[in-house]
């Protein structure tokens, strides 16, 4: 039997895009004494979901992840060379400090920051990207998160991309994750993920982001095809829109009949 603490933590970690505060309010109403134990779950949620925070004293948003964590609740942003503290419960940033990029790949990070931002705005109406040293500075991580919340229409969505570029081996691998929640008189959740292995196209920042855009287009086209496959396949096989006879059931005639007899309607006399 799971402890109360791990139960409420699992609720936080499973919160849909844009609905963390609603989930926390529900936990407060159900188990007020457990709320104080949620700090590690908030941190895990924010780092996994690439939660965006507004940089103090700036209009820029930056994302929070394990890749830009400095420990002790502090994170850094490569673009503005700033570090900041994050309150995981309120998702607010504070105490900014200068934080020069300390990496053998500083130049690459700078040019990827420029190209990846530009490429992202070509496909995402709204997104936040982050480029950080990864794998003890042997590689570079390219992260992207795009959120679209429409609670007044009962839906929210999130797209997350994670790529690891290894400049010495020229390898480029990544994961794309998309989550959609629709909850008008119901609860429907779509979640999908795809691991990709790409060619880094020679390793220049422009080539890398071009390969990423190509792979993401391909994934989105495949996803659209998968919707059609499910609609035409599994969904149709579960319940027909109309019986084979193309007639609705004649309930008046159904009572005295048993299965196997022809009562399906559409009979001509």
């Amino acid at each position: 039997m799971a402890s109360k603490q791990s139960t409420v933590a699992s609720f936080v970690e499973a919160a849909p895009p844009g609905e963390l505060s609603n989930v926390v309010a529900d936990i407060k109403a159900l188990a007020p004494s457990e709320v104080q134990s949620l700090e590690p779950a908030f941190k895990k949620y924010n780092e996994e979901q690439y939660t965006t925070v507004k940089l103090p004293g700036s209009s820029e948003t930056v994302l929070v992840s394990a890749y830009n964590s400095l420990g002790n609740g502090r994170y850094f942003d490569s673009a503005s060379q700033t570090s900041f503290e994050v309150d995981h419960a309120s998702q607010k940033a504070s105490s900014p400090q200068q934080h020069p990029t300390d990496s053998q790949h500083a130049d690459l990070i700078r040019s990827l920051q420029k190209s990846f931002s530009a490429a992202a705005s070509e496909h995402f109406p709204s997104s936040t990207v982050g480029i950080f040293p990864a794998e003890s500075h042997s590689a570079v991580a390219l992260l992207l998160v795009a959120n679209k919340y429409s609670p007044q229409n009962f839906w929210n969505g999130r797209w997350r991309s994670t790529y690891i570029l290894n400049p010495s081996s020229n390898s480029l691998t990544g994961t794309i994750k998309v989550d959609v929640h629709y909850y008008e008189d119901g609860n429907v959740r779509m979640s999908t993920s795809k691991k990709v292995e790409l060619s880094s196209g020679g390793g220049s920042a422009e080539a890398v982001v071009r390969e990423i855009a190509k792979a993401e287009n391909k994934f989105q086209e495949e996803l659209n095809r998968a919707f059609t496959t499910l609609a035409e396949g599994s969904f149709k096989g579960l319940r027909r829109q109309l019986p084979v006879t193309r007639q609705r059931v004649e309930w008046e005639k159904i009572g005295g009949y048993r299965l196997g007899q022809d009562i399906g309607g559409g009979r001509t006399k």
């Binding site: 679209k148 969505g157 959609v180 429907v188 996803l223 919707f227 609609a231 969904f235």
Partner: peptide, 22 residues
């Protein structure tokens, strides 16, 4: 269900990311 599962979900993904460059 058909509308929500295959229409709405696909539309939201399209709202997050556009295949055609913006």
């Amino acid at each position: 269900l058909q509308e929500v599962y295959f229409g709405k979900a696909k539309d939201v993904v399209g709202d997050l990311r556009s295949i055609q460059p913006l």
